[in-house]
Simulated assay, not measured.
Amino acid sequence: MRAKQRKRKKWLWIIGGGLLFILLSAGIYGYSIYHNVKQTANLMHEPIERSISEKRPEPISLEKREPISILLMGVDERKGDRGRSDSLIVVTVNPNKKSIEMVSIPRDTRTKIVGKGIEDKINHAYAFGGVEMTMATVEQFLDIPIDYYIKVNMESFKDIVDAVGGVTVNNPFTFTYEGVTFPKGEITLDGEKALKYSRMRYEDPRGDFGRQDRQKQIIEAVIKKGASFSSLVNYDEILTAIGKNLKTNMTFEQMKDIQTNYKDARQQIEQLHINGKGRKINGTYYLIVPEKERLAVSNKLKEHLEIDTTS
């Protein structure tokens, strides 16, 4: 047992979620677990057509600890239907500043859909052109490179929460959603309740912005739970849930590099917000984000990525 512990390898699992985006860290002990992790990573791997972002002149160097960005996509795919992205969260990771910044893009945000030539809700990009079109559209909207994506089916996300033994969050107010009452204060949620907790929108006085905060609460809770030693007890269940429910363009080797060079970024997580005003255009509701607001968020992310800001 001690010999296995000396072989300990820590991994940064970045799990994206349909309604949340997940960063899960877990320690890996011994060859058999290492082998299973590698198999899971290979099962998750789903490359995209482009090799690097058009907004990044040179390929990213994980060995040099260059800040990276990840698009977490929660989708509602069903058999025979690609679906739409129910949740889009951009995560920037800066190991030099030992910090992570997260921003949810409201799904009703009106913007140009890259490759489609129209303005529409940003979450429709996935229905039109899948992962590639969504990444390109988010890149244009925020004017930053998107290096990696992680996609998870919303319905399957509850398996991941259950695999880490549930999560604990601090609920700001009491509400009932789909037959479940969530009391104010610290509450512990299994996978199904976590999914409902993160989906409620209309009873929240802050609407979609409140929903986004609850999604990010779940993400942070999974990060902390996944990073704990106790979660290793269920590593088979965790890996099974990840392998079935997640897709990413990260390779196994890139995941290893991220764990080695970026794990300290977990020390500080900052949540950003995109604000706007709702408006109906031709009978359809959109969130209109003022250019000043979009530019402010864009520059904050650029600063964290250590690239030039826009005046």
Rank of each mutant, 00 (worst) to 15 (best):
K10S: 10
W13I: 12
I15F: 10
L19Q: 07
L23K: 14
L24A: 15
Y31G: 04
Y31M: 08
L43N: 08
H45R: 14
I52F: 13
E58Q: 13
S61V: 03
I70G: 05
I70V: 15
I70A: 07
L71E: 05
K79E: 11
G80T: 03
N94V: 10
I100T: 01
M102I: 05
V103F: 02
P106E: 10
D108Q: 11
I113C: 09
V114E: 06
K116R: 13
H124L: 04
A125D: 05
G129Y: 08
Q140C: 06
F141E: 03
L142R: 00
V161G: 02
V164F: 12
T168V: 04
G179V: 01
V180E: 15
F182M: 12
G185K: 03
E186V: 08
I187W: 07
L195M: 15
S198H: 04
R199N: 10
P205A: 11
Q212E: 14
Q215K: 08
Q217L: 10
I238E: 03
I238K: 00
I258N: 02
N261P: 04
D264I: 04
Q268E: 08
K277A: 09
R279A: 15
N282D: 14
G283M: 11
I288H: 00
E291N: 06
S298F: 02
E303C: 02
L305T: 00
T309H: 01
